[in-house]
Simulated assay, not measured.
Amino acid sequence: MAGALPDGDPVPLDGSLPPAATARVGADGFAVYVHVPFCATRCGYCDFNTYTASELGGGASQAEYADTVLRELRIAQDTVHPAKVDTVFVGGGTPTLLGADDLGRILEGVDKAWGLAPDAEISTEANPESVTPEYLRRLRRNGFTRISLGMQSASSAVLRILDRRHTAGRAPQAAREAREAGFEHVNLDLIYGTPGETADDFATSLRAVVDAGVDHVSAYALIVEDGTRMASRMRRGELPYPSDDVAADRYLAAEQALTEAGFGWYEVSNWARGDDARCRHNMLYWTGADWWGLGPGAHSHVGGVRWWNVKHPTAYAKRLAEGHSPGQAREILSADDRRVEDIMLRVRLRDGIPLDRLDAAGAEQALADGLLEPAAYAAGRLVLTLRGRLLADAVIRDVV
């Protein structure tokens, strides 16, 4: 289960924001995130705010969830007034446990509330076993343009350790089905460094994503979170802890295989076939845009105010049924808070960040250590080298 949400100041019952926060809403882009908190089963490594049927208890209905989200959307519509919505991203959980038409109704609600940009990117996450060709076609007809499938690995043994339900070949097959259904952009997610995963296992996974014909790949090192079943197994000695050295080897293997296949990195953990295949929604997060997060536990950010909703779907539905904002707490970010967060995110991007925003001595040392691209540095920007990507967290500490 996900950890506790942070403390913060109370959110007004009507969800209103300080006038200074809404004065320029959407000036740097506006995104909508929709959290769907349902899963058929819980993966052993997962600490997201998600619930299986047995964990939900009474008072939270999957069948009525779209209507509940639309209630929050009405509060959002009264609170902020962006000129348009640039991206919508439905995440989870497993969003595709909802009907394609329910997801379409939520998207239609966003369009009615604020208006979707003509070229808006509309994404959803999906587990490979939760979609069929017909479901994918219905999603596409409902306006979705991009899908991100949780593949994790092409090794059956690794999938079992991760407690994934789909078979090794199902994710690439679902990716091909999404292409056939008309999706403009298809992503496959990989996790590397799982206990028991071999170099050959990961090489097989990389070949599978390349052969699937997708235009985007995300690859993340396994992180073991407290409170998960995997963390408990490691404490009992049933599984070894992940190795940083192995994770670095896997990252280098991903960079080589994906680059040779025509992908280019644009964020430390993300590769795309051309700029138009980048995830525009995530780019808005990483470059400081405004966004509204709908759903239990969802976070939002508008004009330097960040807030988060109550975690449990039952509490979320109850707040909205009473006509109140589901916001649990919020914080107003200081100028220094925003500067530090901007650096933390932009340093990880292929486009980098201007040097004049950074600590000069730290940047000079990172350059001397071979962590920054010399040509970009000479042009006044910090851009990580391959070695710098492996040590991105250390670079961020130095330049902040």
Rank of each mutant, 00 (worst) to 15 (best):
D244G: 09
R233H: 15
V268D: 08
E267H: 03
A248H: 04
L190Y: 05
T194M: 08
E238S: 15
A261F: 08
V246T: 14
D201Q: 02
S243W: 10
S243L: 14
D244E: 14
S269M: 01
E255R: 01
R179N: 05
S269V: 15
G182D: 12
G227H: 10
A181S: 11
A257E: 02
A174F: 05
A231P: 14
L206F: 01
E267I: 11
S243E: 11
S218V: 07
L239G: 12
A174W: 11
A254Y: 04
R176Y: 12
V210Y: 01
V217G: 04
G262W: 04
G196T: 02
H216C: 01
F263K: 12
V268N: 13
P240C: 12
N270E: 10
E177I: 15
V268L: 12
E225A: 13
G182Y: 08
V246S: 12
W265P: 04
E255S: 01
Y241T: 13
H185L: 06
Y251I: 04
A219Y: 07
T228L: 07
N270Q: 09
A257H: 01
S243D: 08
T259C: 00
Y266W: 15
R273I: 15
F202K: 01
Y241G: 13
S232A: 15
E180V: 05
Y251C: 02
G193C: 03
A175H: 00
L190S: 13
L188M: 08
E267D: 10
A253M: 07
T194D: 03
A277S: 07
V217M: 03
Y192C: 08
T194F: 04
Y266G: 14
Y241A: 15
D276A: 05
P240R: 11
G274S: 10
A221C: 09
E260W: 01
V246W: 09
A181K: 15
F263S: 02
R176V: 09
R229H: 14
D245N: 08
E260D: 04
G196S: 10
G196K: 14
E184R: 11
R235M: 04
